[in-house]
Write a protein that binds this DNA or RNA. Structure first.
Length: 844
RNA sequence: GCCGGAGUGGCGGAACAGGCAGACGCAAGGGACUUAAAAUCCCUCGACCAUAUUGGUCGUACCGGUUCGAUUCCGGUCUCCGGCACCA
């Protein structure tokens, strides 16, 4: 087998007839990669005569090694980029490095090396691996988020946010990962665990920097509707995450505390007359004041302290019992004047709504269970059937809509009218108003870590919080060398970094020592790609206006909320600031599936890892790319199959052999001049393949079926050669068929296609040829096979002229011998004919 | 609980607009070539039945509906995957 032969071009005796070259991917691939690099083949420049197309794969974290997931995204992006180039677009296809982050610090400890050194080594290595895959990147546009000339602009964007009131500092209960030794954004906590290290996240009360993403909640939600070419599942995930609910904020006056009130949020103001109690979050600021001096004081404060110590998982677990303690105080229902007890409960979250909940046990299942547990009254105020449910016998809350009862002047209204009526009434009384709340929280961006972009803020004793002036950017990271306690000290551990002077008053000041969340750096990198070396601003507006938006973005589903939400937020802020024209960064999104093997994610512990390197070494990049695109449609999970790879390699060798054999033949034989039926059929196969491949890549992103269409074409060419050997073959038609096949293969297997292209003596690069166009005339057939059904079951097949009219078709169907026999003694009820497809005869 | 996606041979998958279910590939079996192996080529390959070289029945998770005709459309059920969830 060729793959085990020496790397040099080996000649061997084939079929006793020709001396041929073996398909040697390593040699071919290295040679073309070198050529493409020398010729700056993928350089993108503004060209107003062409339509631009921005193809982007999510840039990687430079972990040091490429895995199959990487190979899959890049292969998808590369096929699209090359295809679009051939279709005449001005394609930009850049690549860079999301280079800040924790692994570099861990590696620094392990290898006693500066994080930046480790990162740069990894980048060099991964870049080589990428290039071995034959990817069409414009490396002139490479960006590295950890380089000062990049994070300078990340800091600049932070200051822009600050100026616009979107970056602020507050003390709040935040997620703390003890393993990573830093705080985390809500989006970075998955089921109570740190997204990076999977250890349990604690809650801590800290003063931190936030970005006001909640200001954009409505826009981020609404604009999902204009993203028609995003997968539904990603949009749904973002909608869920933003979590919009409509309702009312209602103020309950406090008995014994004149002028004080508790504000609650509810989606069901129509149930206000059914409120029988109220529950505050343990963190609610009023708790301490309410219990002060009551006999419940000690118990409540102890309860509050205990709950606040619990971790996020403990507190939100399904098993956690709902506990409530009476504060000894009462609130007044704003519509009924009724006095209701105020409790403190472990299930109420301070961060959502107002941190206080009105309890309506008859119409909320959780309130119902809570009321039963503590023997609190249950009052039905929404009736939904003929019988009014009895409060004693109810087994569950009724949470649907209905007619309002026991609700004073509002009796008889339906729920939706009641919501409006009650809220309007409350607003008139100054006791409430319509309100929309979101689940989305502001983005916590401080990280107590070294390897990130420093937050460009200075604290001055006289002036307070002072943003670093733009001209002083970047605030550069000090060189990290010393390691303590098995960790790289964060910036607070570098006195020369911390001590500075205030730019306003010139007095002594200290720098902010937290760095920014790495997701900040990746929220705008696509903009930097348009002008990566620009020194006057984060990007050159001329370039950004030409290239943006990203027309096709490709990446993993794991960023459905995280990166994709943050990047949309940044884009909207920059649009509001007048810096860019687009409102959404990514027009079209392809969320590719994961790569599995033997039913599990590839992992060292399972021993099922296959690396791109070993595939390239053994079969060549072209084979690996072909398999990864052929095995499944891109958005589905892919099952890695070693035998499947063999199959794809076999196919490429088959293509190679076909070309070699034909080349010999063209030299040694004359061939025949007149194209006949066999040649027309071959041409039909060619043009059918062109049509299908074009549609499958360009419209459907189904590379697997595009590849199978090329395989069918190759099979057809083999069949033609076999059916008409030697001098009876038409060399011109054959040569043309091979040429088209190579063009169709070019996006998938760039090296092999380029090699064949040149071996045929064609000029230029195959990747700069116009994409083949199918000729409808060549697709036309004279005769078609039509299925004859009786009662919907296939009973025969007839071959008729392609444009046979309906009546003749039916006649032909009826006169088919077998059909005729089956029709004896039957009454024909109806006949349906679809020209070119089928005839269905319905009988009794 | 709410929301989204999916369910087709031994396997990955195909069927684009309601019209021959299983393209293409993998695996498997048989054969050719070869001293042999590799490579390559040819044939078979959903299940069951049969009078078994050209026939029949069933078959796209399940039950029903619409239709001349349903993997495809509609209603319901089940299972799996994913997101959100003590969210007021």
């Amino acid at each position: 087998m060729s793959i085990n032969l020496p790397l040099d071009r080996a000649d061997f005796l084939y079929g006793g007839r020709f001396f041929m070259h073996v398909y040697n991917p390593t040699e071919i691939e290295e040679r073309w990669q070198q050529r493409w690099k020398e010729e700056n083949f993928y350089r993108a420049v503004i060209d107003d005569t062409k339509t631009k197309y921005f193809v982007l794969e999510m840039f990687p974290y430079p972990s040091g090694k490429l895995h199959m997931g990487h190979m899959r995204v890049y292969s998808i992006g590369d096929v699209l980029a090359r295809f679009l180039w051939m279709r005449g677009y001005n394609v930009i296809h850049p690549m860079g490095w999301d280079a800040f982050g924790l692994p570099a610090e861990n590696a620094a400890i392990e290898h006693k090396v500066n994080p930046s050194v480790w990162t740069m080594q990894n980048i060099e290595h991964m870049k080589k691996q990428q290039n071995r895959l034959g990817l069409s990147y414009d490396w002139h546009r490479e960006v590295n988020t950890s380089a000062p000339d990049y994070y300078r602009w990340s800091q600049w964007l932070f200051l822009l946010m600050y100026r616009r009131g979107l970056a602020y500092r507050k003390k709040a209960g935040v997620n703390w990962c003890a393993t990573c030794n830093t705080v985390l954004a809500n989006e970075q906590v998955e089921k109570g665990l740190c997204w990076r290290c999977s250890s349990a996240v604690e809650s801590r009360e800290l003063e931190q920097w936030f970005l006001r993403i909640t200001d954009y909640a409505e826009q981020l939600l609404n604009d999902l509707d204009i993203l028609e070419d995003w997968p539904e599942r990603v949009k749904v995930m973002q909608r869920n995450w933003i979590g919009r609910s409509e309702g009312a904020e209602i103020a309950f006056k406090l008995k014994d505390f004149p002028g004080q009130e508790i504000r609650t949020f509810t989606t069901r103001p129509d149930t206000l007359f059914g409120v029988t109690y109220m529950v505050l979050a343990p963190e609610h600021p009023l708790v301490k004041q309410l219990v002060e001096g009551t006999e419940n004081e000690e118990a409540v404060l102890e309860f509050v302290a205990r709950v606040r110590q619990e971790s996020e998982i403990e507190r939100t677990s399904d098993e956690a019992p709902k506990v409530g303690l009476f504060t000894g105080r009462f609130a007044v229902n704003p519509v009924s004047g009724e006095e209701i007890p105020v409790l403190v409960g472990n299930y109420v979250l301070m961060a959502y709504g107002t941190g206080a909940v009105m309890g309506v046990p008859a119409h909320d299942q959780r309130d119902f269970l809570f009321a039963r547990q503590y023997s609190l009254p249950i009052r039905v105020v929404i009736q939904h059937s003929e019988e009014e449910p009895s409060e004693e016998t109810m087994t569950e809350a009724y949470t649907g809509a209905g007619r309002m009862v026991n609700s004073g002047p509002f009796n008889g209204l339906n729920s939706s009218d009641g919501i409006t009526a009650i809220t309007t009434y409350l607003a008139e009384q100054g006791q409430g108003h319509f309100r929309i709340t979101y689940r989305l929280r502001d983005w916590l961006i401080s990280r107590q870590r070294y390897w990130g972009a420093p937050i460009p803020i200075v604290y001055c004793e006289n002036c307070g919080i002072v943003p670093v002036p733009e001209e002083d950017l970047p605030v550069e990271l000090p060189v990290a060398l010393e390691l303590s306690d098995n960790r790289v000290p964060n910036l607070a551990g570098y006195p020369t970094f911390v001590q500075t002077t205030c730019s306003t008053c010139g007095g002594p000041a200290r720098r902010e020592t937290d760095t920014m969340d790495t997701f900040i750096c990746s929220s705008w990198y696509f903009l930097r790609f348009t002008s990566p070396n620009y020194v006057d601003a984060p990007f050159d507006s001329k370039e950004v206006d030409y290239w943006m938006p990203v027309d096709q973005y490709v990446g993993g589903i794991e960023h459905a909320v995280l990166h994709l939400l943050y990047a949309r937020f940044f884009t909207k802020v920059l649009n509001d600031a007048g810096l860019i024209k687009v409102k959404e960064p990514f027009s079209r999104l392809l969320a590719q599936g994961m790569v599995y093997k033997d039913g599990a994610k590839m992992s060292k512990s399972k021993g099922n890892v296959v690396t791109p390197d070993e595939i390239v070494e053994r079969y060549g990049a072209d084979t690996g790319r072909l398999f990864i695109l052929f095995a499944a449609p891109p958005e589905k999970d892919l099952d890695w199959s070693d035998q499947g790879v063999e199959g794809c390699h076999r196919f490429l060798r088959r293509v190679w052999r076909l070309v070699e054999e034909c080349a010999m033949q063209f030299k040694g034989e004359r061939g025949c001049a007149d194209p006949g039926e066999a040649e027309m059929e071959l041409q039909r196969s060619v043009h059918a393949a062109i049509k299908k491949v074009t549609h499958d890549i360009g419209e459907r992103f189904n590379f697997n079926t595009a590849i199978s269409a090329i395989m069918e074409l190759v099979n057809s060419i083999y069949a033609y050669r076999q059916a008409s050997s030697g001098d009876r073959q038409n060399h011109a038609v054959l040569r043309e068929s091979l040429k088209q096949t190579v063009l169709l293969l070019a996006p998938f297997v760039p090296h092999l296609a380029e090699e064949i292209w040149h071996s045929f003596g064609y000029g230029g690069s195959v990747h700069r040829q116009p994409w083949p166009q199918y000729d409808p005339h060549k697709l036309q057939v004279n005769e078609v096979e039509v299925v004859v059904q009786i009662n919907g079951k296939v009973r025969g097949k007839i071959t008729v002229p392609a444009n046979y009219p309906e009546d003749k078709l039916i006649e032909a169907a009826r006169s088919n011998q077998r059909v005729d026999e089956l029709l004896i003694g039957k009454e024909i009820v109806k006949t349906v004919a679809v020209p070119g497809r089928l005839v269905n005869i319905v009988v009794k």
